[in-house]
Amino acid sequence: MAFENPSREQIADILRNAGNIAVVGLSDRTDRTSYMVSQAMQNRGYRIIPVNPKASEILGEKCYASLQDIPEPVDIVNVFRRSEYCADVAREAAEIGAKVLWLQQGVVSSEAAAIADEHGMIAIMDRCIKVEDSIALRGK
């Protein structure tokens, strides 16, 4: 069966119930899409947890080298990495008990989606979390 993203209503529900969002590949460079999207989400009230082994702090939050290093529960793992790295990220997300694996716009990995499904996670691919949040909030 071909992969299908959750419906807009399901995505809205996921975002309404999201607590911590770990952002894998969050850059500390303010001109990068990962930074701008994460900053916008943070400004909307989401808790952003940066995952970047080369930085100590981004957006005022402590950075972690990997998902396993995060000492608190993670609801959404938002991925700003190339598609070929996503299966490994999906495995790590499964290990920490994340609920959602979110691959940003332009990022697609059938293997990562299959891993997410196998571990009871919801997979979202090729969608921007900031755009989806804007759409979800329009209905409020």
Rank of each mutant, 00 (worst) to 15 (best):
C86Y: 06
A116P: 14
R127A: 04
I76N: 08
V131C: 10
V89Y: 06
G139V: 14
A55Q: 09
H119D: 07
D75G: 11
G106Y: 09
A2N: 15
V77C: 06
Q39N: 13
I14F: 12
A87R: 04
L137S: 14
A12F: 04
D28Q: 13
Q10R: 13
K62R: 15
M125K: 05
R44Y: 12
E84S: 08
D28M: 09
C128I: 03
P6D: 09
Q10Y: 02
D69S: 13
C128S: 05
R47T: 15
R138M: 14
E95Y: 05
A94T: 01
S134V: 11
S7M: 02
G106E: 08
E72L: 00
L59M: 13
M1E: 13
L67Q: 04
A90C: 06
G19T: 01
Q39G: 00
L26G: 03
E61H: 10
A93Q: 11
F80K: 08
K54C: 02
S27G: 04
Q105T: 08
D133S: 13
Y46M: 11
V74P: 14
R138S: 11
C63H: 12
E57T: 12
V24G: 04
S110W: 01
V37R: 02
A112E: 06
V37D: 09
I70P: 03
P71Y: 02
A98F: 12
V108A: 06
K130I: 00
V74G: 08
F80D: 05
P53C: 06
I11A: 07
N78G: 04
A40I: 02
G60S: 12
G97H: 12
S7G: 01
A136R: 11
G25N: 04
L26D: 11
R138F: 14
P73I: 03
A22N: 04
Y85E: 14
D133E: 15
S7A: 02
E118K: 15
A12G: 11
Q10E: 15
R32T: 00
Y85N: 14
Y64M: 07
S7W: 03
A114Q: 13
T30C: 02
V23S: 03
K140V: 06
E111G: 01
A2M: 14
D117A: 15
D88Q: 11
E61A: 15
D126Y: 06
D88F: 01
V107R: 08
N20H: 11
Q104G: 04
S66Y: 00
L15G: 07
N78Y: 14
G45Y: 09
E111H: 03
N5R: 05
V77G: 02
L137C: 06
R82S: 07
E61V: 13
A116D: 09
V51A: 00
G139K: 15
A113P: 08
D75H: 15
A114G: 10
A114Y: 00
I58T: 01
A98P: 10
Q105C: 02
I129P: 13
E92P: 11
M121I: 10
L103R: 09
M121R: 04
A65T: 10
D133I: 01
R91Y: 10
A136L: 12
N43H: 10
K99Q: 07
D13C: 00
V51H: 05
A116Y: 03
E4K: 15
G120A: 09
D126I: 05
D13Y: 01
P71K: 07
T33M: 13
I124N: 01
Q10D: 13
E4D: 08
L67P: 09
K99E: 00
P71H: 04
I11N: 06
L59Y: 13
R44W: 13
V24K: 02
A18F: 09
K99W: 02
